[in-house]
Amino acid sequence: MTQPEFPPPADVPHDPSELPQPVASRRRPIGWIVGGAVLVLLLFFGGCGALLAATDDGDPAKPGTAAASATSVAPTTAAAAPTTRAPEPLPVYDTPTKRDFTLAVKILRKQCFGSAGCNVTYRIDVTYTGDGDLDPAKTYEVTYQVKGAEDPIINTFEVSGDSASVQQEESASTRRSGDKLTAVVTDVSEF
């Protein structure tokens, strides 16, 4: 027995391309948006990791560096030699001579008596002109002479490191009001 063939209903087309197509939904593709965002983040962080790996300086002290992981994988046969720091050079200090000092006489007060001369109050200003620094652990005694006064004046001051201890005021008498006081170093010795 054969099945009778019935003609298709009138509203159904005979060609499959003429079949009605499903209506596209108008919902937003949220899955695609979330997936795209995740993909962008993965690419960003992957790029940052590649950049960090490219700038690795190979310092074995830094964990996670290529040199550190290579060191931890490779077996070592000899113990690492201890590193010693080179000693810092000791400072070299100058030994002063009398030519290393320049002295200036600073007039603080001057009282003159016509042609009889003047009484002068002064202070010595010291300048060290040597090539190097002086040892701060050593003290030097500098002897100097003041010229231009009625009587010769000899005095001393002490120098230690970069400071000199001089008297704040000294006195002298000159024969004439136009006489000028000068000072020169005559000796330097270590205390």
Rank of each mutant, 00 (worst) to 15 (best):
Q3C: 09
P4G: 13
E5K: 12
E5V: 11
F6K: 14
P8H: 07
P9F: 06
V12R: 11
P13G: 04
P13F: 03
H14M: 15
P16A: 07
S17M: 10
L19V: 09
Q21K: 12
Q21H: 10
P22Y: 02
A24C: 11
A24E: 11
R26C: 12
R28T: 07
R28P: 09
P29F: 03
G31V: 05
W32V: 15
V34I: 15
G35K: 07
V38P: 04
V38K: 08
V40G: 10
L42P: 04
L43N: 09
G46W: 00
C48K: 15
C48Q: 15
C48P: 11
L51P: 05
L51H: 10
L51I: 12
L52F: 05
A54T: 06
D57Y: 05
P60V: 08
A61N: 09
P63C: 06
A68H: 05
S69F: 13
A74S: 15
P75V: 08
T77A: 13
A79R: 13
A81K: 10
P82F: 03
E88M: 08
P89I: 08
V92T: 14
V92S: 11
D94R: 10
T95I: 05
P96I: 00
R99W: 07
R99I: 07
T102P: 02
L103W: 01
C112Q: 05
F113M: 12
G114T: 01
G117M: 10
C118V: 02
N119M: 07
T121S: 07
T127H: 02
T127S: 07
Y128D: 01
T129P: 01
G130W: 01
G132L: 09
G132P: 00
G132A: 05
G132D: 03
D135V: 03
P136A: 11
A137Q: 08
A137M: 10
A137Y: 00
K138T: 11
T139K: 06
Y140H: 09
Y140V: 04
E141L: 14
V142T: 08
Y144V: 03
Y144R: 01
V146P: 02
K147F: 01
G148N: 06
I154W: 06
N155Q: 11
N155A: 14
T156G: 00
T156N: 05
F157C: 03
E158I: 09
S160I: 02
A164L: 04
V166A: 05
Q167P: 07
Q167V: 11
Q168E: 15
E169F: 14
E170R: 11
A172W: 02
T174M: 06
R176F: 14
R176H: 13
S177T: 12
L181E: 00
A183M: 03
A183L: 05
V184N: 12
T186P: 05
S189V: 14
